[in-house]
Design a protein around this nucleic acid. Structure first.
Length: 476
DNA sequence: ATGTTC
C-alpha cells in the first residue's frame, strides 16, 4: 500500500506483489478502506495473465474476491473466476417509472396499503411464486422470452415491446448442453420460485425523484420528473444460482487440483476460459443471468398489479432499465475481445457507446445505484472517461460491518431513528419490527453520498437523479 | 446471497 500512486485525485494505482490494482475513491473513502481488501486483490492477481483489476469505492471483503471488483482477462488466453462473479449470479437492479407524484403517497396509510398489496403478489416469506404456469426450463434457456406472453404487459409483438428492449439483456444465448449434466433435483427444487424476492439485501423500494439540474435534458428523455414516484427492485437468481454454485465449485476445484493450480485462499476458484470447465461455467452462468432478469421481471409484474389495485388499472409503469452487478460479460474494448468480471460493480456506458441497447444509444443507459435502506439511491449515466475502469462504477453503498457483526455495533433504536419512525416522513417497512432486518440498516453501510462523490469525481459517471425512499418491502 | 451456512 506504500506504493500507491495518484493518477488523479480520485484514482490511485497500487503496486502489489502480484500486480497493479486500480482504486477509485475520494480521500475520505480511501482512508477508511479495510486493509484486507488489498490482500484480497493481491491474491486475485495471482491468477495468470490478468489484464486489469480495480476496486470501486464501495469495495469490501467477500468470499474469494471483494465486492466492488472489476477484473478483466482477454478472451483469447484468459481466465474466468466464478469467485469474481459472486455467488448470486445475475443479481441486479430494475427501476420502473410511475406517473404518480410523491404527494399521492404523502399519507402513511397509503404507503402501508401499497406494500401490503405488493406482498400479495410478490412472496417475501415463502418461496412459492403465485405465477404457476411459468416453465423453469424455458426461462433459463430464453430469459424474458421464455415467459408466457400474459406476463409481458405490452402484449403483441414481443420483439417490439419495452419489456425486452429497455434492459441490459433480455436473453443470453449459450450452449444449453451445459444444463444436461445438472442433477435432476436442481430442476425440482427451484421450479416454483420465479417472481419471489429473496432475503438479505434484496428489496422493493418506493422512492421519489429529484432530477439533477445538470442532467435535466437526459432525465426528460428518460421520462423522469421532479417529485415522481418510482419503484426500485433488487434481486437475483435465487436458488437456481445457489444450486449451480455447488455443482461448478466442486467441478472447478477438482480441475484445479488436477492441474496443480490455486492460491492461498481456497475460496478463490478460477479456470481458463477455453478449458472445458471454463466454457461449462460460462454457459451455466448465462442460464442464471436469464433466470435473474426474468425473476426481476416477474417481481415487477407483481408490483404493477399491486399499484393498479390501489391507483386504477390505467396506471402505466414502464421499466426504465434492468441491469446486473454480478456477472462476467464478453465485451470488446479497444478492438480486443475481453471477459469483464463485475462482482458488485455496475456497467455505466456513456452516450454513443455501441454496447448500449438501442433506446439508450444516444444518451447512454441509466445506471441504477441503490443506497442502503433509508438513504438515497441514484440514477446515473456513464461518462466517456469511464473507459479507464472498463465502464464499471459502484453497485451501492458497500458494507462496513459483515452481516453477523452488525448487532454488536448498531441498536434497533438507532435504526428506527434513521428510518424516521414515528413521523409523517417515516420510511414504511413491511416487517412488524426492524429487529428482523437490522443487518440491512444504513449504519451497516458506508455513506452512499461519499461513494457517489468518488465515482463522479473520478469521472466514471454523473448523477441524473437522486431517489429518496418512501416505503420498503424486505424478504426474510 | 441461499429451499437460510462454503
Amino acid at each position: 500500500m506504500s506504493m500507491a500512486r495518484e493518477v488523479g485525485k480520485y484514482h490511485q494505482t497500487v503496486k502489489l506483489r502480484n500486480g497493479v490494482l486500480h482504486l477509485f475513491a475520494n480521500a475520505e473513502v480511501l482512508a477508511s478502506l479495510d486493509r484486507k481488501v488489498y490482500k484480497m486483490a493481491d491474491n486475485n492477481l495471482r491468477i495468470p495473465r490478468n489484464h486489469f483489476m480495480s476496486y470501486t469505492p464501495d469495495a469490501h471483503v467477500s468470499s474469494g474476491a471483494c465486492v466492488g471488483t472489476t477484473a478483466v482477462w482477454k478472451m483469447s488466453d484468459g481466465f474466468v473466476s466464478p469467485s469474481i462473479v459472486g455467488s448470486d449470479i445475475g443479481c441486479g437492479i430494475r427501476v420502473h417509472l410511475t406517473p404518480l407524484h410523491k404527494r399521492d403517497l404523502q399519507d402513511k396509510k397509503v404507503r402501508r396499503k401499497l406494500i401490503k398489496r405488493i406482498e400479495k403478489y410478490v412472496p417475501t416469506k415463502r418461496i412459492a411464486s403465485p405465477f404457476r404456469n411459468i416453465e423453469l426450463e424455458r426461462v433459463v434457456k430464453e430469459g424474458i422470452y421464455g415467459l408466457p406472453a400474459e406476463y409481458l404487459p405490452e402484449r403483441g409483438d414481443v420483439s417490439a415491446v419495452r419489456s425486452v428492449t429497455h434492459l441490459e439483456h433480455a436473453r443470453f444465448a449459450y450452449d444449453m448442453a451445459a444444463l444436461e449434466i445438472l442433477p435432476e433435483r436442481i430442476w425440482k427444487q427451484t421450479g416454483r420460485e420465479l417472481g419471489t424476492l429473496g432475503g438479505g439485501n434484496h428489496f422493493i423500494e418506493i422512492q421519489h425523484v429529484r432530477v439533477d439540474e445538470g442532467q435535466r435534458k437526459i432525465a426528460e428523455k428518460w421520462g423522469l420528473f421532479d417529485g415522481q414516484v418510482v419503484v426500485m427492485i433488487h434481486s437475483g437468481s435465487r436458488a437456481w444460482g445457489r444450486m449451480l454454485r455447488s455443482e461448478y465449485t466442486n467441478r472447478i476445484k477438482d480441475a484445479m487440483e488436477m492441474w496443480g493450480i490455486g492460491t492461498r485462499d481456497p475460496r478463490l476458484i478460477y479456470v481458463p476460459i477455453h478449458a472445458e470447465e471454463g466454457r461449462w461455467y460460462l454457459n451455466l452462468m448465462y442460464s442464471a443471468l436469464n433466470y435473474a432478469v426474468a425473476n426481476r421481471h416477474m417481481i415487477a409484474f407483481g408490483v404493477r398489479a399491486a399499484f393498479q389495485e390501489v391507483f386504477g388499472t390505467d396506471l402505466e409503469m414502464p421499466v426504465l432499465y434492468d441491469l446486473m452487478h454480478n456477472y462476467a460479460l464478453e465485451e470488446t474494448h479497444r478492438g480486443q475481445s475481453m471477459l469483464v468480471h463485475r462482482k458488485g460493480t455496475t456497467r455505466a456506458l456513456p452516450a454513443g457507446h455501441e454496447l448500449n441497447p438501442e433506446p439508450y444509444r444516444a444518451t447512454g443507459h441509466p445506471a441504477l445505484i441503490p443506497g442502503s435502506m433509508g438513504t438515497a439511491s441514484y440514477i446515473m449515466v456513464g461518462a466517456k472517461s469511464g473507459e479507464k475502469n472498463f465502464y464499471s462504477i459502484c453497485h451501492g453503498a458497500g458494507r462496513i460491518y459483515a452481516r453477523d457483526a452488525v448487532r454488536e455495533h448498531v441498536s434497533v433504536d438507532a435504526f428506527a431513528h434513521s428510518m424516521n419512525v414515528g413521523t409523517e416522513e417515516e420510511v414504511v417497512v413491511n416487517r412488524w419490527t426492524l429487529e428482523h432486518i437490522l443487518t440491512e440498516c444504513p449504519q451497516a453501510y458506508k455513506d452512499v453520498d461519499q461513494i457517489i462523490d468518488s465515482v463522479v469525481g473520478a469521472g466514471l459517471a454523473s448523477v441524473v437523479a437522486v431517489c429518496r425512499p418512501m416505503a420498503v418491502v424486505k424478504g426474510t
